[in-house]
Design a protein around this nucleic acid. Structure first.
Length: 122
DNA sequence: GCATTGACAATAG
DNA sequence: ACTATTGCCAATG
C-alpha cells in the first residue's frame, strides 16, 4: 500500500487537510505551498495545494492569502494577486526590497516542526 | 480511466 | 536575476 500520507490522516480528503493546515497559519504570517504540503505529509504536493486553494468558495474561513510560493512571491496574477497583496499588507506582511517576502520575518511554522522553506534563499 | 490544467518547486543555461 | 525545462501531485472534463 503506498501511503503518500500518514496513516493517521488516511481517509481524509486531501483538500480537507489543506484547509485545516492553512487555517492554522496566524495573521501576519505566511507559508509556502510546499510548506503546507510538507505539513500534510506530502512534501511533493505543492501543486495540489494550489489546486485546492484555487477552488475555495468566497467567504471561506480558510486564509488562502497567507499562502505564497517558495520564492516569497505571490503566485496569483492580475486582480486576485492584487487582492492577496492587500490582505497581506493589512496584516503587516509586505514584500521587502526586491518584492519578496522574507521568510525569516513572516514565515510561519508550527512550533518547531517542519523546517522553514528555503526556495532559493535561505 | 486517460488527458488536460494549474495559486508549485528545483535545476540548468 | 530571468527564462526554459523537468518532475510532481491533485482536481476536473
Amino acid at each position: 500500500m503506498s501511503r503518500r500520507r500518514r496513516d493517521a490522516e488516511a481517509g481524509v480528503p486531501f483538500a480537507t487537510l489543506v484547509h485545516r493546515t492553512v487555517r492554522r497559519v496566524p495573521a501576519g504570517k505566511v507559508i509556502s505551498y510546499g510548506g503546507v504540503a510538507a505539513l500534510l505529509g506530502s512534501p511533493r504536493a505543492a501543486r495540489g495545494v494550489g489546486q485546492v486553494l484555487g477552488s475555495l468558495p468566497e467567504g471561506t474561513d480558510v486564509p488562502w492569502w497567507r499562502v505564497i510560493n517558495a520564492a516569497g512571491r505571490i503566485s496569483l496574477h492580475g486582480y486576485p494577486g492584487m487582492l492577496q497583496r492587500m490582505m497581506l499588507e493589512a496584516e503587516g506582511v509586505r514584500p521587502g526590497r526586491g518584492g519578496r517576502i522574507d521568510w525569516a520575518r513572516h514565515g510561519w511554522r508550527p512550533d518547531g516542526e517542519a523546517p522553514p522553506p528555503r526556495g532559493r534563499n535561505g
